[in-house]
């Protein structure tokens, strides 16, 4: 079960309905199912020296969360999205509270690479679904190696992410390629055992469940 000290800010900023909902959900989150589902993916932008410099993240919200969000902001999905509504919608999900890691994690082998907060926020409505885009600068740009991987997950598994977009590479990317490694339930019994063997029923371990089910994007350069 999730406990207060494990609670952390989420991209859903506390406002109106969603704030009520989030607070009502806190006790109910004992049943640790994900309730927000985000598809999308990550693209990679390289600098002029061929180093990975920026991640471009796309979040496509599920229909229920999209509806809630648009209701909250008073935006009619049937109308074309105006400039100010677009800005409000983008800001709604890209104004992060302190301590929120953005649910995307970049690793170079064993080394966790720092990422900036969300930049260049964008929003659109696609078939009734809210699509949020933003970029995150790599704090120390580097040439990707065989162990470079981006993991997209919410540690508490309240939000379930799925990488559905094929990653694009931008800039001088000769010799580099990206590959999505989706979570495969059949292949992971052993890591499950190793990580979760001691987890009691009714409890979602922080830093375990979400990562366990995470899709990964591998990025490698020759």
């Amino acid at each position: 079960m999730r406990q207060p000290r494990n609670r952390r800010p989420r991209p859903l900023r506390p406002r109106l309905t969603l704030s009520i909902l989030a607070c009502l959900l806190a006790p109910a989150a004992v049943e640790a199912h994900p309730h927000i589902f985000i598809d999308g993916g990550v693209d990679f932008r390289f600098d002029e020296r061929g180093r990975l410099a920026t991640l471009e993240v796309t979040w496509i919200y599920d229909a229920m969360t999209s509806l809630l969000m648009l209701e909250d902001l008073g935006i009619d999905a049937a109308e074309p999205l105006g400039a100010s509504d677009r800005e409000r919608l983008a800001a709604y999900q890209t104004t992060w509270e302190a301590g929120f890691d953005g649910d995307s994690y970049l690793w170079d082998g064993e080394r966790r690479i720092g990422l900036s907060g969300p930049l260049e926020p964008g929003a659109e409505i696609r078939d009734g679904l809210v699509v949020i885009t933003f970029s995150r600068e790599v704090e120390t740009p580097f040439r990707p190696g065989p162990g470079t991987v981006t993991e997209i997950y919410d540690p508490s598994y309240f939000t379930a992410y799925a990488v559905t977009d094929i990653p694009r590479l931008e800039g001088p990317v000769d010799g580099c390629r990206a590959e999505v490694v989706p979570f495969r339930p059949t292949a992971s019994l052993q890591p499950l055992l190793d990580r979760l063997g001691a987890v009691p029923i009714d409890e979602t371990p922080d830093e375990a469940l979400g990562r366990l089910f995470a899709d990964k994007v591998r990025l490698a350069c020759d």
Binding site: H33, F37, P185, L189, L192, L193, L196, I201, L209, L212
Partner: peptide, 16 residues
């Protein structure tokens, strides 16, 4: 076997 966690993952997909 960790099978109950896979049930959980499966349930999450249906939930979506």
């Amino acid at each position: 076997s960790g099978g109950h966690h896979l049930l959980f993952w499966w349930a999450a997909r249906w939930q979506h």
